[in-house]
Each structure stands twice: as C-alpha cells, then as structure tokens.
C-alpha cells in the first residue's frame, strides 16, 4: 500500500532523512518511535506532501510522488494521496471559527462536493463514534484537549481515508486525557485501518502496533516486531532510548 524508495530530505545542508526504504502493507499499524529531532515528523509529512522530499519516490495506493517529477505532476498525485490519507496533529489544529460538526463536514463538502445533508449525517455518526455526540454545535475552544483530538480524528475520518497518519497525537494532552484518544485509535486499528503513528506511548506501541520503526538521526535504525523490539532491542541506540523513556 505504501512504498518508499530512497527518501532523502534536507533542510539546506542539514540532512534530516537519509535514504529511507520501506514497504507498508494495507491494514498494518506502524508505530514510529525515536528521540526528538530524529526526523519522525518529517518522515510522516513527506508521505502526504506537507514537506517536499529532496530525493526519492513514495507510492501510496498507486499514486506516485517522485522528487524529480514536475511540480504539476507532483501536485496532482499529492492531491490524490491527501484525499485518501487522514492526518492528526499534535496540536489538533481544529478550525476555531467553525463548530465541531462543521470541522468534520468541511472537507467532504469542499473537497468531495458532497451534499450538505449527507455530510452532516456522516459527521454525526463519526462524532458519535468518538463519543462526542453532545458536542456537535460547540466551538473547539470549549472542549478539552482530549475532546479536541477526538474531533480531529473524526475530521480526518470524514474523508473515508485508506491511511491515517498520527503525529504525536497525545503529546499535548494532560495525562488523564491520553486514554480516551488512544482508545479511539485502538478501535480504528482493530477495524483494519492502515496507520502510521509517531508516538511516545510505549505501551500503546507495544500492544496495538504490528510493527515498530525506531528512528535516530534520520535513519530507520530498527524495523521490528513490537514484542521482540521491547523485549530485546538489537542496537545500543534503541536500548538507550528505551531505558530513557522507561526510567522513573
């Protein structure tokens, strides 16, 4: 479903991603972990074109983006990929001038030209699914962080994506609100959604993910099965990292 070949990303002379190569089959749940600054967000954002890669080729659901392609070809492929890919951000990024349900109906109406009524029906069902039926008509600022992030997930799901990208979805949340968001993500995983999740929630990664990518300094240092990885990481780098995050 996702095929990445020779992906490089530079910011000026700073190499942030160095030759990533991997394939992710449909329905796989991938947790990306690693120290801050290792390029996890950049990797995720290259997949839906929020960052332009410097070199390489990414194929998502048959849509190919190539660093060497013309701007026009790139744009066309990236629009196609974005319509089939949901993204959830650390800071939620809900639209503050729109109500909760308008946040969810916006893309189907604007991008898919869906009938308003149908979009609202779908949005209502999604909000029910993330446990926010009673919040349809309030503004995001009136919600807790956990509720906002669940709306953001519903907003992404409204486009009926085949792939979901999560960039530290619980890192901005108070600890007691983390669970409600992880629960929604777990149910998505159980339904077979293809997911790439950048996270610092090691328990979630261990229990929900099918595969761990451990990144450091722009390289995938380990690509492993979660059980094996958490029991015995193969590299020093990963061992150190796990020690640091599990201390206390």
């Amino acid at each position: 479903m996702i095929d990445i070949k020779g992906l490089y990303k530079n910011y000026g002379s700073h190499q942030v991603l160095k030759n990533l190569n991997l394939t992710i089959p449909a329905h796989q749940v991938v947790a990306v972990i690693g120290p801050s600054g290792s390029g996890k967000s950049t990797f995720l954002r290259c997949i839906n074109g929020l960052e332009e890669m410097t070199q390489g080729k990414i194929t998502v659901n048959g849509h190919e983006i190539d660093a060497n392609a013309s701007k026009k070809v790139w744009q066309k492929a990236i629009y196609a990929i974005r319509q089939e890919t949901g993204m959830v951000f650390q800071q939620f990024n809900l639209y503050p001038h729109k109500t909760v349900i308008e946040n969810v109906t916006e893309a189907p109406i604007v991008v898919k030209k869906m009938q308003k009524e149908k979009a609202y029906t779908i949005a209502s069902a999604l909000l029910k699914r993330v446990g926010l039926s009673d919040k349809e008509n309030v503004y995001p600022s009136q919600l807790s962080g956990g509720q906002q992030q669940r709306v953001a997930i519903a907003r992404a799901l409204a486009m009926e994506p085949k792939l979901m990208l999560f960039d530290e979805p619980t890192s901005a949340l108070d600890p007691e609100l983390v669970g409600e968001v992880l629960k929604v993500m777990k149910s998505l995983a159980e339904e077979g959604m293809t997911m790439i999740i950048v996270t610092h929630e090691m328990n979630f990664a261990k229990n929900v993910a099918d595969r761990i990518l451990f990144m450091a300094d722009g390289v995938i240092v380990e690509d492993a099965n979660p059980k094996a990885f958490f029991k015995r990481p193969q590299t020093n780098r990963a061992q150190q990292f796990l020690q640091q995050v599990t201390e206390f």
């Binding site: 974005r82 990024n93 486009m159």
Partner: peptide
C-alpha cells in the same frame, strides 16, 4: 497559525 493551512491541505483542499 501555520497548522491551520496544514490541516486544511491534509484533508485534500
């Protein structure tokens, strides 16, 4: 905030 544009683009706008 830049995140607003990114969120909109990410949904396919």
């Amino acid at each position: 905030p830049k995140g607003q544009t990114e969120a909109a683009l990410a949904t396919g706008m």
